[in-house]
């Protein structure tokens, strides 16, 4: 007796009667479709709205100081960059579904590298753009009021320092461990193809 045939007979004994019908599956799909990319779409839409808002404010209102225009433009650019980065990521995922397993693992590894780049470069540029932009943007509003000037800039300085030196390194350490584990798993998977 051929063992493969025996294995096939056992394999096909699995109960598949409890699977949802196609109608039930369509209902499930309509509930859950797009849920996984929803966060990315939220980031894209919010960033684009912010970008348009910054540009609109700069176009509609007339400001006296050039710092306001530079600050607003910097924040608009940082928002636009965040939106473009997340959109590229979604586009890559959409192009993926007809890849074989080997191509797919290579894609996952590239995604991991992109995530590392996102943490080590993109986030820094976006945070720097928003921080510098905000500081320049509000200068016109408060430079005539020393108390407000001190309160606003020192509060914002503390906020940026905490984000920069506490929150970001902590988040990066946590994600670095996860990304390293993913890298090891990809290497293990790729070795299986040799």
């Amino acid at each position: 007796m051929d063992n493969l045939d025996d294995f096939k007979a056992i394999w096909h004994a699995a109960d598949t009667k409890t699977l949802p019908s196609s109608e039930e599956m369509l209902k499930l799909i309509s509930n859950f479709r797009g849920q996984k990319l929803r966060n990315k779409w939220l980031v894209i839409i919010s960033s684009l709205i912010l970008c348009v808002l910054f540009i609109a404010v700069l176009c509609i209102f007339s400001f006296r100081l050039w710092t306001t225009y530079i600050g607003g433009s910097l924040m608009a650019l940082a928002s636009l960059w965040l939106a473009i980065n997340n959109f590229r990521s979604i586009k890559r995922f959409r192009q993926l579904d007809d890849s074989n397993n080997l191509e797919f693992i290579a894609f996952l590894e590239q995604t991991r590298k992109n995530q590392v780049y996102y943490y080590t470069r993109t986030m820094i540029y976006v945070l720097a753009g928003y921080s510098a932009g905000y500081m320049l943007y509000i200068y016109e509003l408060i430079y005539k009021y020393p108390t407000w000037f001190t309160v606003v800039y020192s509060t914002f300085g503390i906020y940026v320092a905490v984000m920069w030196f506490v929150v970001r390194p902590r988040a990066f350490r946590r994600d670095a461990a996860r990304l390293n584990a993913i890298q090891q798993r990809h290497e293990k998977l790729l070795n299986q193809f040799e």
Partner: peptide, 18 residues
């Protein structure tokens, strides 16, 4: 082929499964 590629890629991606 397309469907089995999608399914097996989903399996490979399910990190927590490992």
């Amino acid at each position: 082929t397309w469907i089995f590629r999608i399914a097996t890629n989903r399996c490979l991606r399910a990190m927590e499964v490992a």
